[in-house]
């Protein structure tokens, strides 16, 4: 069953929990050092972008959009990789990386519409939709670390059928409500 992630931009408040939850889940750099670094860096498998605020006719337009790898069905990164280091997991459709094959050429980054591939300290990092947590009985079905941590419930991960149903329900709810905040 294909798995996917859905970001509800109307709900995200830009608290950035997802970013740190992901770093913790995947033990990502940077590590604490002594003395601390003023500008530590590391890969971020989910990034959050702030759009706005723009103010038109007294209306504020502003939203926050977390962007991980979207695990495209027809993934350009897989096609672009000269070493076939990127591949699809058969069961879930999640795009994964074979670190032994990756040469760090960054073609995948050039072709990715979302800037998802991350390069740090000579290796490539990519969101794996927390594939290791699939089937684990924790967090009441919220599978990924980012989904579990999100206090705004702006991140949803599931099969494409599940996400389709969720978006449909949201649309129906909106239709029945005059004003949504």
């Amino acid at each position: 069953m294909n798995r996917t992630i859905f970001i509800d931009k109307d709900k995200c408040v830009g608290c950035y929990s997802c970013i740190v939850a992901c770093k913790l889940e995947h033990s990502l750099p940077p590590e604490p050092v002594k003395p601390p670094l003023g500008n530590p860096t590391g890969p971020n498998l989910i990034r959050v972008y702030q759009v706005g605020p723009q103010i038109h006719d007294d209306e504020v337009h502003q939203y926050f959009l977390p962007i991980p790898c979207l695990h495209c069905l027809d993934a350009p990164c897989i096609k672009a990789c000269p070493r076939s280091a990127l591949y699809k997991d058969n069961d879930t459709g999640i795009t994964l990386i074979d670190e032994d094959k990756c040469i760090g050429c960054k073609f995948c980054l050039w072709v990715c519409p979302y800037g998802a591939p991350q390069f740090y300290d000579g290796r490539m990092y990519l969101c794996d939709l927390c594939i290791h947590r699939i089937g684990e009985e924790r967090q009441k079905g919220r599978q990924t670390a980012c989904e579990a941590a999100c206090p705004a419930r702006a991140i949803h991960v599931g099969t494409t059928a599940e996400i389709s149903a969720l978006i449909g329900e949201k649309a129906a709810e909106r239709a029945g409500k005059e004003k949504s905040i």
Binding site: C15, Y16, S17, I19, V20, A21, L24, E31, P32, Q139, K140, R142, A148, A149, C150, P151
Partner: peptide, 12 residues
């Protein structure tokens, strides 16, 4: 089950 960036980073 939710947590914020600060709480999660307690690990460090």
């Amino acid at each position: 089950g939710t947590m914020c960036a600060k709480g999660l980073a307690s690990f460090q």
